[in-house]
Lab assay of single mutants.
Amino acid sequence: MSGIALSRLAQERKAWRKDHPFGFVAVPTKNPDGTMNLMNWECAIPGKKGTPWEGGLFKLRMLFKDDYPSSPPKCKFEPPLFHPNVYPSGTVCLSILEEDKDWRPAITIKQILLGIQELLNEPNIQDPAQAEAYTIYCQNRVEYEKRVRAQAKKFAPS
């Protein structure tokens, strides 16, 4: 494992614990031996107030490669969400998460999670990743928002 990646992720964890947006979660997972795995984080993004996503808490896994922060983490909703920019596998399609697009090593975990929260309610229809959600979003916004509200209710924190 890269010392650069681990040191950056340790800084990220410290900064997150000191200050993070209300309702968001970002925690490194534990290895079988109980030690912390900084390369694999369990996160959760709350649906934004005043949107059909409100009330939901959407679980996301963030996986970092050894060359982080040169390369972005892979962000994957578990379980996958109904959304035009979420692949059926759950992987998020967002330009700041793509090395050859808008990724920059200075982007923080907090910025990534806030960017994904923004994307939930403002899909990028130029870059669809899920045919069904994309089609319904474009053709029947009322039905799309109904499905999103049902999903938010399903993923409401207990």
Rank of each mutant, 00 (worst) to 15 (best):
L120A: 06
K76A: 15
I4E: 12
V92T: 07
K101V: 13
Y134K: 04
E143N: 12
S7L: 10
N37F: 13
P72T: 05
K65Q: 13
G115Q: 02
S71F: 06
P84M: 14
C43D: 07
E78R: 14
L63R: 12
E122S: 12
K76D: 15
P128R: 11
H83L: 01
K154P: 01
F64W: 06
L97S: 12
I45T: 10
V148L: 07
T135I: 11
N40K: 11
P80D: 12
T135R: 12
A106V: 11
I136W: 13
F64D: 05
P28S: 06
W103T: 03
Y137K: 06
K110C: 06
D33W: 07
Q111N: 14
P88W: 06
P123L: 04
F24Y: 12
P80K: 10
K153A: 15
T35F: 00
Y87Q: 05
I116Q: 06
G115T: 00
F64H: 03
Q111T: 13
D100G: 14
Y144D: 02
P32V: 10
V27A: 08
N40M: 12
P157T: 11
N124Y: 09
Q130D: 02
K153G: 01
T108D: 09
I45A: 01
R104Q: 04
T51Y: 04
E143Y: 10
H20D: 05
W53Y: 05
L38K: 00
A129R: 02
V92P: 08
N31M: 13
A133C: 09
E145R: 14
P21A: 00
I125P: 07
E99G: 14
A10F: 11
L113H: 03
C138P: 00
A131Y: 06
I45E: 02
S7M: 14
A152V: 06
P69E: 01
K74D: 15
G23K: 08
G34R: 09
C43G: 11
Y87V: 07
K59N: 11
H83P: 02
A15L: 12
F155H: 09
A5V: 13
M62W: 01
I116S: 11
Q126E: 13
P69A: 04
F77Y: 03
K65S: 13
A26N: 04
D102K: 07
G50N: 15
V27C: 14
F64I: 07
K48V: 04
I112M: 13
G90P: 06
K153C: 09
K146T: 13
R149G: 09
A44H: 07
Q139N: 11
N37C: 15
W103R: 02
P69W: 06
A106L: 01
D66R: 07
L113K: 03
E132T: 08
I4D: 15
R61V: 10
N140C: 03
V86G: 01
L114M: 13
Q130I: 02
F24L: 06
R8Q: 06
A44I: 11
V27P: 08
R149K: 12
P46A: 09
S2L: 06
M62R: 04
E143Q: 11
E12N: 07
Q126W: 11
T51W: 02
L63A: 11
L94E: 06
Q126F: 09
Q130M: 01
D33T: 04
E118T: 09
N37G: 12
H83E: 00
T108Y: 15
T35K: 00
D66N: 10
A156E: 13
D67E: 11
I125C: 11
F22R: 00
R149H: 10
K101A: 15
K76E: 15
I136F: 13
N121Q: 13
Y68T: 06
G115N: 01
D102N: 10
V25E: 02
N121A: 12
Q126C: 11
D100M: 15
P32N: 13
I125L: 10
S70P: 04
E42R: 10
N31W: 10
K110Q: 08
N37T: 12
Q139K: 08
P28H: 07
P80Y: 14
G90K: 02
E132L: 12
P28W: 00
G56V: 00
P84K: 00
E145D: 13
